[in-house]
Design a protein around this nucleic acid. Structure first.
Lengths: 210, 210
DNA sequence: GCACTACTTGACCATTTGGTCAAGAAATTT
DNA sequence: AAATTTCTTGACCAAATGGTCAAGTAGTGC
């Protein structure tokens, strides 16, 4: 039956299956500690089959990191569609907290990659991330100039948002240990989110209700 | 190859030399990516000599992580010797920022370890870190109860301080890339520190001047 | 049916890895 | 200075690793 993209579909699904396993293994062991054999075992495929879809370990890794980067950038939309700092910054924090909750492994892979000097995605950093950051800094600076929030260095504000939100993904294990060995439940996530958003917005002199 | 001043070295000094090289290599490559050979090369000693002082790679790694943990805990003194939240929390932030600046590699090794599930230092987390955290939570809760700062979940406040300050070490490379490829200079570090401290203290309703 | 392409996989290989060892060189003690 | 302990190091090893390959099995188009 179909056809020209039938095989393509199957390929995409298989790649997704492998990428999911790879994300898990890379997150738990780092690039160096991850082995193709383990990725094969987790994905339930023979190692040689993995190499059919991704010729090298670095190839596979690059795809994993770039997937995460895309998800990351989606949270940026909170900024663009916002009417002001309460909605823009508050929404951005919420979105990033949600990503930390739903994609903790992706965040870990990203963190590992950057911590080791971004050998694979340096071009992403220099290109997309730099320009995205510059754009957001401008928006924040405008809000400051318009008296909608306190005087702050927008760049360091962004770092603060990134670090606080991603901390819940990257240091998930530490947080669980300090939470009696159990993951945060729904109420605790809400509490975490409210605390992060509350302190930052108050610290910026922004009225949280609008 | 022999060491220029090797003959005079005592055991402790030699161990320190190895630990310094190991910290660098573990930070840059992670536990899995680090090789004993590379640590040997960086420290300027034959590999077999490294194994004389540290029997296994994990042994060496454990020592590196535990050293970092000690430095980490030193910053805690800001809390204990403080007269109130402005001095206690502000001083703690300053101390942790200074550690991120002076020991970025240590912070990275710690982050890597925790991110990968803390396979080596889980006992530290469950023992020392848990009890230290509980103690600080109590102190903060007292400050809140005494009306010296806003209502906040002390636990999540600690996470915020940890994440924001350590971000400057763990994501050093990303920050440098976003800083035009150059490390933060002294003024920029002061700016970073002032921003972190300022937003958090204001977010807690603490008068920064005392 | 037949040819052709896409996928699967066990067996295999060159290289690298953490770790060992034994023989010797320095210190240190007696 | 002899004996003993501490350190140094090149050579070596078993195991693991990323990656290859050829022989086979589907699936697709004619």
């Amino acid at each position: 039956m179909s056809n020209s993209n039938g095989s393509k579909m199957r390929r995409q699904e298989k790649e997704k299956q492998i990428l999911l396993a790879a994300e898990k293994v890379f997150a738990e062991a780092g690039f160096g500690g991850a082995t193709m054999q383990l990725i094969a075992d987790v994905s339930g495929l023979p190692k040689a089959n993995i190499h059919y879809y991704f010729s090298t370990k670095e190839d596979l890794y690059r795809r994993v990191v770039s997937n995460i980067f895309d998800i990351w950038l989606q949270a940026a939309e909170a900024f663009d569609e916002s009417s002001g700092p309460a909605e823009g910054i508050g929404g951005y924090i919420d979105a990033k907290m949600e990503i930390s909750r739903r994609h903790p492994m992706g965040s870990k892979v990203w963190a590992s990659e950057v911590m080791h000097g971004a050998p694979v995605i340096q071009d992403y950093l220099e290109d997309v991330l730099v320009s995205w950051t510059e754009g957001r800094i401008e928006v924040i600076q405008h809000w400051i100039d318009d008296g909608l929030m306190a005087q702050t260095n927008p760049r360091h504000l962004l770092y603060m948002i990134w670090s606080t939100t991603q901390h819940y993904a990257d240091f998930q294990h530490q947080i669980e240990t300090l939470n009696g060995g159990r993951p945060l439940d729904d109420a605790e996530w809400q509490d975490a989110k409210a605390n992060v958003r509350g302190i930052i917005l108050r610290g910026l002199g922004i009225d949280e209700t609008g």
